[in-house]
Measured scan of single mutants.
Amino acid sequence: MDPFVVLVLCLSCLLLLSIWRQSSGRGKLPPGPTPLPVIGNILQIDIKDVSKSLTNLSKIYGPVFTLYFGLERMVVLHGYEVVKEALIDLGEEFSGRGHFPLAERANRGFGIVFSNGKRWKEIRRFSLMTLRNFGMGKRSIEDRVQEEARCLVEELRKTKASPCDPTFILGCAPCNVICSIIFQKRFDYKDQQFLNLMEKLNENIRIVSTPWIQICNNFPTIIDYFPGTHNKLLKNLAFMESDILEKVKEHQESMDINNPRDFIDCFLIKMEKEKQNQQSEFTIENLVITAADLLGAGTETTSTTLRYALLLLLKHPEVTAKVQEEIERVIGRNRSPCMQDRGHMPYTDAVVHEVQRYIDLIPTSLPHAVTCDVKFRNYLIPKGTTILTSLTSVLHDNKEFPNPEMFDPRHFLDEGGNFKKSNYFMPFSAGKRICVGEGLARMELFLFLTFILQNFNLKSLIDPKDLDTTPVVNGFASVPPFYQLCFIPV
């Protein structure tokens, strides 16, 4: 058959498939802009700032609406009420993970971030239990974070109060905490193996944040037939998995079943207990991918939040002064901060919360999916439909947070200066898919920041009023603009 005829037939089939998918069930789905064949609503979305586009569309179609990214149908949730109703009140029905062709290629359905069903539930339950087990290797997770915080302070001392970009050092600290939990080992910041790991993690975040990856996920045929950065992403992930597998083999040879040292040991012990169960989800494949998931999810998000926190503290020296006064009063100079201190430091706690609220790190979270046909607000959402959640619409709700575009710790303080919780605080998402490392991340943010401010004054290279804190939105995360500062020993 003539190649031209084959091409026309293929394009015609794709067009018909697109029209059929977009028209099927439209009477039951939430409203939304009319999609174009094949490309859907992509032309109506700013790929570099999806969150802003969703906010604009919500003003037209309401808090629940339908979009098509290519052939992929998505239902968008915008605003606290619908997000709570879906992710919390109907948590089980909305607990699936959205379709990610690239991740599915890399992870093969294993791990904790992109798995679904029984596998996801069992691996998540085990990971939560293990991360909360403060007795691994007779050292609590808090001990590990405190140790890394001391190392971080010593690295900052080496800058000798000269101007520096904190990106690298602030990236090393949370990565080392995860390494300590998974591998029972922290690395020197100049260790070549550690630097290679950091390089792969950072490069992957840069790649994932590009519009090209959005295109690959919406048109998965590209993955096999086109060159691009997605190939580098898959190569980096394969490198990390190979490295983790080597460490798993080392653990198998040296493990003491009665004295687990780290996450890998705990997983291997669980595998041993379930070795007679042919349906067990505790396999080497799941261990390797879960460890890679924890490394990827637990490094860049925390380091970016820390980097943004220091920029905001530079911009608002009056806030920094209040935090340091609270540190001096509650902790002093002669001991290290600990998590028990947080309950006695409402202002510092409010500042950490406000940093996370203000920066809105992951504006749309990772997409969910419905696990069955769901009736939601008089609409029928078919099983498997991807759910896109606007966390921006919750964290920047102007009824809950007056002047949401302003950095103001009073958003989390009552009139008496006591810490005030808010149900709208969802930087880790909400419901059954809430970030498994939430507790660890909150511990790291509090301890790293208090250790830094206990030991250093922060000095800006320019007038604080002239510092730009506008986030650089890159399609996946909101990151701070480049800046330098000086760490002046107190």
Rank of each mutant, 00 (worst) to 15 (best):
N398E: 14
K270W: 08
I19S: 10
V83D: 02
N217M: 12
D49V: 02
G384E: 05
E85S: 08
G439M: 09
G117M: 04
L67P: 02
N176G: 04
I213K: 07
S127V: 12
I60V: 14
G96A: 13
L16H: 01
V8R: 08
L87C: 04
L170Q: 00
P37R: 01
Y80P: 07
T320N: 08
F126T: 01
Q278I: 13
A149P: 01
K432S: 13
I284C: 09
F419Q: 04
N258I: 07
G384H: 07
N378Q: 14
K28H: 14
T301I: 15
S12I: 12
D360Y: 01
E72I: 02
S390H: 15
G332C: 01
Q214N: 08
K383V: 06
K275M: 09
I331K: 03
A321M: 12
E92V: 08
R124T: 02
K383T: 07
L449T: 08
L102Q: 04
H353R: 02
I213F: 12
I88R: 05
L314M: 15
S280C: 08
L29I: 10
M406A: 12
F482T: 15
I60E: 11
V351C: 09
H99R: 13
P30L: 02
V323C: 13
F282L: 07
V113S: 15
G98F: 08
S140C: 10
K28M: 12
Q324M: 10
M240L: 15
K247H: 04
F419D: 01
S422N: 07
L87M: 10
E272I: 13
K270N: 08
R433K: 04
F419M: 08
K275S: 11
D46V: 04
M198T: 08
S336V: 13
F487W: 06
I488S: 15
I39Q: 03
L43V: 06
S58M: 05
R186S: 05
Q214P: 08
I19A: 14
D256V: 06
A309H: 00
P404N: 07
D224C: 05
T299E: 03
G296E: 12
F126K: 00
K247Y: 12
D397I: 02
D262S: 09
I434T: 11
F226L: 14
F69K: 08
N457S: 13
P211C: 08
F412N: 00
F94C: 05
S115Q: 05
A149V: 03
V5Q: 07
L131T: 05
A291Q: 03
N277V: 11
N107C: 07
R119D: 05
N231K: 14
F134L: 13
Q214G: 09
Q356K: 01
M129C: 10
K84G: 06
Q278M: 11
I215H: 05
K375P: 08
C179D: 00
R433N: 03
T305I: 04
T371N: 12
S429E: 02
D349C: 15
R261V: 04
L90H: 13
L9P: 04
F219Y: 14
S12R: 03
L391W: 03
I39L: 11
A297D: 04
E281Q: 10
T167N: 15
I42K: 05
L67C: 10
K247A: 12
L57H: 06
K432A: 14
S254P: 02
Y189E: 04
L197T: 05
V352W: 03
F183P: 01
G62T: 00
N457R: 10
I123H: 03
R21M: 12
K375D: 07
I331D: 01
Y80V: 06
R21N: 11
P101L: 02
S95D: 05
R125K: 15
G96I: 04
L391T: 02
L43D: 06
H78G: 03
N116H: 09
G437R: 01
H396I: 03
S115K: 03
S254Q: 07
A441I: 01
P402N: 14
L268Y: 03
P427F: 01
K275H: 10
T229I: 14
E155K: 05
R26N: 11
S393N: 02
S162R: 14
F487I: 04
H368T: 02
Y189F: 07
P427K: 01
M136G: 12
V473N: 15
L195V: 15
K322E: 08
G91R: 07
R206I: 07
H230I: 07
A106T: 14
N418V: 09
G416V: 13
Y424Q: 09
D466A: 11
I434S: 13
P3N: 09
I178K: 06
N398R: 13
T130I: 09
P471T: 07
F219K: 05
S422C: 05
G98S: 12
L388F: 06
V355T: 06
S242K: 13
G416Y: 15
I205M: 15
R442I: 08
D2Q: 05
L170R: 01
A350C: 03
F239V: 09
L445A: 05
A430C: 13
R157G: 10
C338T: 15
F419V: 08
L57G: 01
A321N: 14
T301V: 14
K421M: 15
A149W: 03
D468Y: 11
T371Q: 11
A477L: 09
D89M: 07
S303M: 09
H353P: 00
R139L: 14
L295P: 02
F134I: 14
Q193Y: 13
G111W: 01
I123K: 01
D256S: 08
I88S: 07
V248C: 08
G111I: 02
P337L: 03
R342S: 11
F4C: 13
G437Y: 03
A161T: 11
T299P: 04
E328I: 13
R342L: 14
N286S: 10
F263K: 01
L237C: 08
L87V: 04
G439Y: 10
K375R: 13
K270H: 11
E281H: 11
Y68I: 05
S393Y: 01
T385I: 02
M129T: 11
K432Q: 12
E85I: 04
T210C: 14
S23W: 14
V479E: 15
D360W: 01
I45V: 07
L440K: 02
L14E: 00
S23V: 11
N403L: 09
L9C: 11
A430R: 05
W120C: 06
M255R: 06
N418W: 07
L233D: 03
P480M: 06
F487E: 02
E122S: 13
S95R: 05
R433H: 04
E438A: 11
S12D: 04
F194G: 05
V352P: 00
Q22E: 12
I207S: 06
V288R: 05
H368L: 05
F487A: 05
I362W: 11
Q340L: 11
S365N: 15
N202V: 15
V83P: 02
L445M: 11
L314K: 02
M1I: 00
I207E: 06
T392W: 04
